[in-house]
């Protein structure tokens, strides 16, 4: 098993005909993902050749779902059009919409979330690398050749730190790795992932990667204390970030005294989470956890 994305998932790609969309569609197919087609109203009815696969382009997500039974959409459309693309996926009631696009105005994401919060669709992102269930399927831009299937579940605000941890623990492997993104408003939180990993029989231990800004990690710590029985190892980035400066990710900012790395680390440790000082130490902590299972 894995969470949200398995070998049975059927993927459509919104923005497949763009350069990024095409490149990553090729990579997702190469990883064994069942990609059913793309969505682009201006190119509907055409076929796109991606290596050995000929993929149909549909006019809408609704049509793609109806024609192919797709249950995942991966979204690569530019920021100015992301809001309408995600709303289209939500209106089509597709179970999972993975929004890779970076640079989406936060008011647009807030508008999308107001509509999506009680919908049938789980949104991951925006500004995220997507998720991968190694050996099963890949929905997004996480490299699929770092590691294979295994017992670790990973949730992270950061793409490269996800890759780094996957690499360091590549001999053990992962059930699912979810990059939830670094924007101030995101569709899937650490807590959503923790709950899903807790319920997933294939996941034996969890890596949680956070960074400065907001209080998602503090809330995740409270959730771990009351709802998670599986061991969790944590890592927080941004101890040296000065207040008031955005550090790359739109949501990575210490505002006054809130959103600091110290507060997040302390909250996680109070919930019994072992927190590494560096990514490598975090990997060593997880290795010890797996060894003791």
């Amino acid at each position: 098993m894995a969470i949200w994305l398995t070998e049975k998932s059927r993927v459509v790609v919104q923005g497949m005909t763009g350069a990024e969309g095409l490149k990553h569609t090729r990579r997702m197919l190469a990883a064994g993902t069942d990609v059913a087609g793309g969505v682009n109203p201006r190119k509907a009815g055409t076929l796109v050749q991606v290596k050995d696969t000929s993929l149909p382009v549909f006019a809408s997500v609704g049509e793609a779902v109806k024609e192919t039974g797709a249950d995942v959409s991966v979204i690569f459309v530019p920021p100015a059009h992301t809001k309408s693309a995600v709303l289209e996926a939500v209106d089509a009631e597709i179970p999972l919409a993975v929004v890779i696009t970076e640079g989406v105005p936060v008011l647009d994401t807030a508008t999308v979330w107001a509509r999506a919060r009680n919908s049938a669709t789980r949104i991951i992102g925006p500004n995220c690398p997507g998720l991968i269930s190694p050996g099963r399927a890949n929905a997004g831009i996480i490299p699929s050749d770092i590691t294979g299937a295994g017992p670790i579940g990973l949730v992270s605000k950061s793409g490269t730190l996800t890759y780094q941890l996957m690499h360091e623990l590549r001999d053990i492997g992962f059930s699912t790795c979810v990059g939830i993104g670094g924007d101030p408003i995101i569709g899937t939180t650490h807590i959503d992932c923790l709950a899903a990993f807790e319920a997933d029989p294939a996941t034996k231990a969890i890596v949680l990667i956070g960074e400065i800004g907001g209080d998602a990690e503090e809330r995740a710590a409270a959730f771990i204390a009351s709802h998670v029985t599986k061991p969790v190892v944590g890592y927080i980035a941004g101890f040296t970030a000065p207040p008031g400066k955005t550090m790359g990710h739109a949501g990575a900012i210490v505002s006054g005294s809130s959103g600091t790395a110290e507060a997040k680390k302390a909250a996680l440790e109070a919930a019994g989470v072992r927190v590494g000082r560096t990514p490598s130490e975090t990997a060593r902590l997880m290795r010890a956890v797996i060894g003791s299972l």
Partner: peptide, 17 residues
């Protein structure tokens, strides 16, 4: 200099450490 916001923040921390 690094690639990815999370990794760069992490690098600052490890250098400070």
């Amino acid at each position: 200099i690094g690639n990815g916001a999370g990794l760069v923040m992490s690098t600052l921390d490890v250098v400070a450490g």
